[in-house]
Amino acid sequence: MFEARLVQSAILKKVLEAIKDLLTEATFDCSDSGIQLQAMDNAHVSLVSLNLRSDGFDKYRCDRNLSMGMNLGNMTKIMKCAGAEDTVTMKAQDNADVVAFMFESKNQEKVSDYEMKLMNLDQEHLGIPETDYSCIVKMPSQEFARICRDLSQFGESMAISCTKEGVKFSSAGDIGSANIKLAQTANVDAEEEAVVIEMQEPVSLTFACRYLNSFTKATPLSAQVQLSMSADVPLVVEYKIGELGHIRYYLAPKIED
């Protein structure tokens, strides 16, 4: 028996919005410790790694490990049926071929039950090596989304260069070029408005804008985003999901031909 309850169904809606651009289907691996998902996009350029800890749920029970393959378009259809203020409960029996979603309004005046067929998906979990990143940048997630959107107008790819002075985003193409520099913030009232750079060595890497823009669909989940970079390895873009967990995106760099 598996059962996971979230008082705020909006969190699950946002998680789904954050992954469905990159993935059409994915397996949710449920265990005693929580729900995990790891999947690459079709082109094997980016990877989504979602971790929702069991203790972050309002109720969580998982007697036996369970892998639930879901079509994310269909899951989105069902989650759209939940009101923003509804509580959501996901349930599945052991070895089930369906997952149930129950939405309850405040005061339980309205209770909706949906069942979705599960799929058997080929799972290939990649081994992601432990990496000490040369640069870690923490910045407001809305600022990052804005920069990715703005620079996408100039070219298909953008360079991210980090030194201890700051982080520079740049792009160039037919219409011209763009450069955005962000300095580390000296004093900020709100922690989520800060730009913080931890640098061991300067790094400059180039990435496809299209994927970065897809990652920014996670912006509503967190006020801050963390970018981790080292020379010649994939970028990690991480959004915390409150006390529940995190979503991490890995993106392979563009390399010299």
């Binding site: 082109a43 980016s46 090596p129 392979a252």
Partner: peptide, 14 residues
Amino acid sequence: NRKQASLLNFFKKP
């Protein structure tokens, strides 16, 4: 010119 690398160049297959 740069080409897009694959994640499979960096991460181990199971």
